[in-house]
Computed example of a mutant assay.
Amino acid sequence: MDANQESMSNPFGMDEACQNCDALCATRETVVHGYGDVGAEFLFLGPAPSEGADASGIPFTGERERELLDILTAVDMCEDPDADEPALPNAFLTYVTRCRHPDREATEEEVVNCEPYLNSEIRMINPEILVPVGQRPLEELAFEYTTERAEDLDVTERHATTIRGRGFEIIPMMAPVEQTDEERTAFLDHFSETLGRDYRQTKGRRGR
C-alpha cells in the first residue's frame, strides 16, 4: 500500500466501498478514510465521522467537529480552515471507525473491523505524536500503543498532557466543542511547547 500525496484524501488508497459492517453500510454516505500530509509528524484521531464528514468525505469537517481545524490553524497546521479541502502541513486526520451511524456510537465489533485501516495509516505515516480527540480514540490508542490500561485513562484528566507510548508520544485532547476557554488555552500551550522541539524540521512536509 503506497502513499499518493497527489491526493490529500485517502492517500493510501484504502477500500472506499468497504462492506465489513452491514449496519453502517446501510446508514453511511461515505467511507471516511484519513486525510492530510502523509509525511506528518502529528496524527489526529477522532471517534467516527459526523454528518458533515460523512457528506464531504473529509475528517473533522462537520459543524461540531470543525473547531479542530481552528486549533490547527492557531498552530500553523491548517492554512484555510474554511476551505472544502484544507491544506494541512504536517498533520493527518483520521477516525477510529470510518462510517457514520446517525443514532449511535460504533459497536466494539465495528471498531475491530476498522482497526486494520487505522493501524495501516499509523504504520505508513509513522508520526511522532498521536492526538486522540475524545475518550474513545484515547482508549483505542492506549490498548495498542501504550503500556497503560484503557480503563485507567480519562481524556478529561489527561487533556493537554503527554503520555509516553510504545514508539509514539500521545497528547490527549477533549473534543474541541466540549472545551472551555481555559482547556483550549491549556492544550494550545502544551502543544506549542511540543512543537518547539523542532518537529517541523524533522519530517513534516516531506514527500514519500
Rank of each mutant, 00 (worst) to 15 (best):
E79F: 03
A106N: 12
H33Y: 11
E157Q: 12
A53H: 03
V155N: 03
H101S: 08
R66P: 05
N10S: 12
R206T: 14
D198M: 10
G46W: 10
Y145K: 04
R208G: 05
L118D: 06
P127W: 00
E182M: 08
G13Y: 04
S7I: 11
A74R: 09
A83M: 10
D189Q: 10
T162E: 09
P137A: 01
R164A: 08
S56Y: 06
A186Q: 11
S7V: 14
G167Q: 05
E148R: 14
M173N: 00
F191Q: 02
D198C: 09
G13A: 07
R166C: 02
E51M: 11
L138C: 01
A3G: 15
R123A: 14
A142L: 05
T162M: 13
D76E: 12
V96M: 10
G62W: 09
L72W: 01
G167L: 03
Y199N: 13
D189F: 06
V155A: 06
Q135M: 01
I163R: 04
H33D: 10
E65A: 11
G207P: 03
S192Q: 15
L141G: 00
T147I: 08
Y95T: 00
D181A: 15
A53M: 09
R208L: 15
T162R: 14
E148G: 00
G134Y: 10
H33V: 05
G62V: 00
N119Q: 15
E178I: 02
L141S: 02
T61K: 13
G52H: 07
L153F: 04
P116I: 04
D54H: 09
A3W: 09
E169G: 00
F44T: 10
L141D: 01
E79I: 07
A40R: 03
I129S: 02
L43V: 15
A26K: 15
L118S: 06
R200W: 12
T180E: 01
E193K: 10
F191K: 05
C78R: 02
A175P: 03
Y95K: 02
A83V: 04
T27W: 02
S120G: 09
H159S: 01
L138W: 06
Y145W: 08
R123E: 15
A3Q: 10
R164P: 00
R28Q: 14
V155R: 09
P86Y: 08
E85R: 13
L93H: 02
A26F: 00
G36D: 10
T73K: 11
G204H: 01
L68P: 11
G39I: 06
E63Y: 13
R64M: 11
E157I: 08
E108A: 13
H190N: 12
L43A: 09
T146W: 01
E105G: 12
S9N: 11
P127I: 03
V38P: 15
L93F: 07
G36F: 08
